[in-house]
Design a protein around this nucleic acid. Structure first.
Lengths: 235, 235
DNA sequence: CGTCTCCTTGATTGAAATCAACTTAGGTGG
DNA sequence: CCACCTAAGTTGATTTCAATCAAGGAGACG
């Protein structure tokens, strides 16, 4: 599992700090796995079964994590049970880095997954010591912020079709195969991410299939038939 | 205008970097003004009239800004004119810090306002030099990320009443007077921030007034009559 | 005093939520 | 291996909340 990190191009991490902050190094799939490199893991890789909680919102945020494999969702609940998924995290992503003492979101395993824990205090010390790591994590924080803003645009001003198209495009981009994407999450998860009900997600996927933009191989396997059209829907 | 910064308790900025990252120093109004302290301004304070664009999405992001006075909105447009306001920025807030080469949002003056420009390259250099500044800006980025996530929850899973109540509570918190808040923005702005139409915002405010939670002194001056009830609506 | 922008209010429409079956796919154990 | 069970997904009918369309009203400013 942790060999995964070794397959990544190590060269990339050598880029100049100033260059990264100046924007020449927008985080990409290839460098994601290096974001916590050089940091001492706070323990062995931890594995979680589908549906298990990794941490709960409001608990002490003493460690943060990097995904090795699988998919994690970070989400929040309203007291009547409504849920909003803030983001899905895949191999290489960091999650659980907080500004406050407590986690502001809960994290749960969407499917079988493995994560590496890191101590927040160690990160704090390293950031105070001017090394490449601080730039990487800072870049990551800014990148997450940009993503959160884009997600707001999606949630606030788009129709169901546009939301679902946007979701698919997002997954095409982090999928090894650009023709067929396999979703690890349920319709409910997708709905809670997009601010829709599971029925609407299902209907909308059906609609996109009928107009020949996608093909549902199985419920969780989707073939992208017209990426350009999807992209223009998602704007 | 820039005297504003002097009224802030300078002691706060002396806190230990590690302490901030560990979450004991969640950014508050009182320390906001120090976030860019120690950085050399890239020029004189710039003033903008109501409605003026400070920068446009997609242009080169060579400087970022700190608000001295007034209110700024950062927003994005869809090609059919729909707009999503990502956030409003008030005195002390930083905006325009980007991970990419270009601004991902546009920034516009909601009302007459003054901002200080800073060079992004200087920030990059300073972050690479381990000083207090990097911790402050890093903390700011994480804080913005948390806010963006909370905004997503608002946009995705709440009714019109809950959205408007949440908006009011947000402004009570950054208002000098906790009983009466004065809004600098139009109903359209509020709608674009909450993912509602201006008519719905107006109707919802009318509704909140009818149930005695608020009182509309003028269209832009709102007296909060029952903050607790509003807060419980906004959850 | 007229004009413009912002705000409010009303009537109607429409997209997505809700409620409700029904189907499919996986997993378990007889 | 098949029957059963359950969770996930699809599809249909109906309702609801907010959008849209439309008309007036209030304030600011020359």
């Amino acid at each position: 599992m942790s060999q995964l990190a070794l397959s990544v191009d190590e060269g990339r991490v050598a880029m100049q700090p100033a260059a990264m902050l100046s924007g020449w190094a927008r985080p990409k799939k290839e460098i994601k796995l290096n974001w916590a490199s050089g940091l001492q893991a706070a323990g062995p890789v931890r594995c979680f079964r589908e549906g298990r909680e990794i941490y709960g919102a409001g608990t002490q945020a003493e460690v943060f994590f990097q995904v090795v494999s699988g998919v994690i969702r970070t989400c929040k609940f309203l007291n009547d049970g409504r849920r909003q998924i803030s983001s899905f995290h895949v191999a290489g992503d960091l999650f659980g880095i907080e500004v406050g003492v407590h986690y502001s979101l809960s994290a749960e395993a969407v499917c079988e997954c493995a994560v590496i824990p890191y101590r927040r205090r160690e990160l704090a010390a390293r950031v105070a010591h001017n090394d490449i790591l601080s730039i990487q994590v800072f870049t990551y924080a800014l990148w997450s912020m940009t993503r959160a803003q884009e997600h707001s645009l999606l949630l606030g001003r788009r129709s169901a079709v546009e939301k679902v198209a946007g979701f698919l495009i997002e997954w095409v981009e982090c999928s090894p195969n650009s023709r067929v994407i396999s979703l690890e999450m349920t319709r409910q998860d997708i709905g809670d991410y997009l601010g829709l009900t599971l029925e609407t997600v299902s209907r909308t996927l059906g609609h996109l299939e009928r107009v020949c933009l996608i093909e549902l191989l199985t419920a969780r396997e989707i073939r992208i038939k017209d990426a350009a059209a999807l992209r223009s829907l998602s704007l």
